[in-house]
Amino acid sequence: MSLASSWRTRKFRLGFVGEICPQCHAKLFPPRDICPHCGGPAKEPLAFSGHGTVYSYTTMSVAPRGFEGQTPYVAALVKTEEGPLVTAQLTDVASDEVFIGMPVEMVTRHINEEGDDGIINYHFKFRPELAAAAKH
């Protein structure tokens, strides 16, 4: 993540803020300013709840540059309760515990850093819903 990208994306990365289309009321995450459903402008911010379920997942055993020290890590598509699918890592969970449909919640975590002297990137991840995990 470049420095500029890290700054520009802070509201949705850290605050999990998406958008809602004022015309067709579609909820959008990540924000994109033009509604993909009706084609109209959609810049109205909408804070997403951060709750959802695992839609699909994988365990990354070979990592791209910047993530090498983290393998194996779990990446997933999460179906948010507002509707949109979101790509993110899962955390605080072993890969063999994950299943499609698992309730998860958003947390903010350190995702990587730009070398030893560069900026630290924080990003949303999802972890098993704490309340559901406690019932287990």
């Binding site: 947390v107 350190h110 630290i120 924080y122």
Partner: peptide, 13 residues
């Protein structure tokens, strides 16, 4: 702390 946790992430939650 996990690999992806530090004072900032702990503080946030």
């Amino acid at each position: 702390p996990g690999l992806d946790e530090d004072t900032v992430t702990i503080a946030i939650e």
